[in-house]
Write a protein that binds this DNA or RNA. Sequence first.
DNA 1: AATATTATGTGTATAATATACACAGAATAA
DNA 2: TTATTCTGTGTATATTATACACATAATATT
Lengths: 230, 230
Amino acid sequence: MKVSKEKQLDTLITTVNPSSYECTITVDCAIFGFQDNELKILLVKRSVEPFKDYWMLPGGMMDEGLTMEESVRKVLYGLTGIHDVHQEQVKCYSDVSRHPIKRVVTVCFYALVKPENHPVIAKNYVSDVVWHSVNEIPQLGFDHNILAVDALAKLRQNLKENLIFGELLPEKFTLKELQDLYESILDETLDRRNFRKKILQMDLLVPTKEKKVGVKGGPELYSIKINNTT
Amino acid sequence: MKVSKEKQLDTLITTVNPSSYECTITVDCAIFGFQDNELKILLVKRSVEPFKDYWMLPGGMMDEGLTMEESVRKVLYGLTGIHDVHQEQVKCYSDVSRHPIKRVVTVCFYALVKPENHPVIAKNYVSDVVWHSVNEIPQLGFDHNILAVDALAKLRQNLKENLIFGELLPEKFTLKELQDLYESILDETLDRRNFRKKILQMDLLVPTKEKKVGVKGGPELYSIKINNTT
DNA sequence: AATATTATGTGTATAATATACACAGAATAA
DNA sequence: TTATTCTGTGTATATTATACACATAATATT
């Protein structure tokens, strides 16, 4: 069966672009940090409508030439000046009326950063950038409370399965600091000896033979093992 | 500080639509079924370019008035005639060149269906719809091999955490059938007695006091407990 | 109809893992 | 110098996971 060039082209276009509905895509990012022995989330105050003066997860448009992951990195770089941030995809949200004015599909990520290393700065359409305790998240704009809850759940799940504390601790840290971090993320207390046993037998940490000063007991500092094949 | 109506409107529009990049969004679905004691995945053969004659995951455009989840249901309804399918979001994919002609962001889902209950039918731009063993997935169009692998991994993970076999078994089934299903999904063999012990103490199944005929031993049929509060 | 075959259904012993728990030593604070 | 607070360590117990064998029921075979 032969078809004309026009017909072929038509079919191709139709296939590529059937009914051609296009939609705005944004990325939002739950940025977690560990500060004052507490798990924090970075929220920005929106300075324009809609949801003016609401706290929100930082986010932005997906760029034409960038993947979502790259777009998230761009947002993070803008807010904190860092690249190389550990980030994980959480979920995609597509409720038709999640944005009151036009349809916007968003993909949520979470990222882990060290607050002390990366002072945050207000950006476009944002009047304030503040670390909030994850236990006291205010009412957020759009559906961002849902995103925040989902992101935290994903972080917890990943923490239980792997050993992901990426950017959340300084390069050298004590087991106590690591335990505090775990307890903050999981929101439960852990037995000190059992935690130590479990973590050490994972064989992912190396003792640095340095001791942390200024704290009683003189605890040993550990760092993350670089090459697991050694 | 006062601003003109025009300025306000301008700000609003800019905010809502900053640089206004829109993008085509599709949904793709790894449909799993359990047939001939094997976990199967439903693939469609594409009849148009690009990737003409390649096997693919079934999918389609996200509809203007529908969420992604609803769009997936629409695809599934078109292929199998059923609604009420258990589906889970897997991941969103946004590589800039994942589609050779234009940019398309896709969100992958998986769904669980009973093949015997739902004969599948070819649809637009599709010349064939066939159940394939998950162990013999051919080369797929676009990046669908990646989606398929991710979907199967997600299914396995969910199976280990919950008890999700949704549409994969008939209403009444024997423990053997359930175990075969688990073994197919997890791709490992399980001890019969230990499996039985574990599943039964989850307290999610109820014995029907019926026996399956045509099979030696006369095994009891179970169904899923409807209301866990009873 | 009798017999062989194949699948079901059941419990226990052992191994592996998770949990609970107390005291001596080191650094800081008083 | 002494008190305080944190670190570092091992074991006993409970819980959970794993390995494993035989009697019974239904079908298949002769």
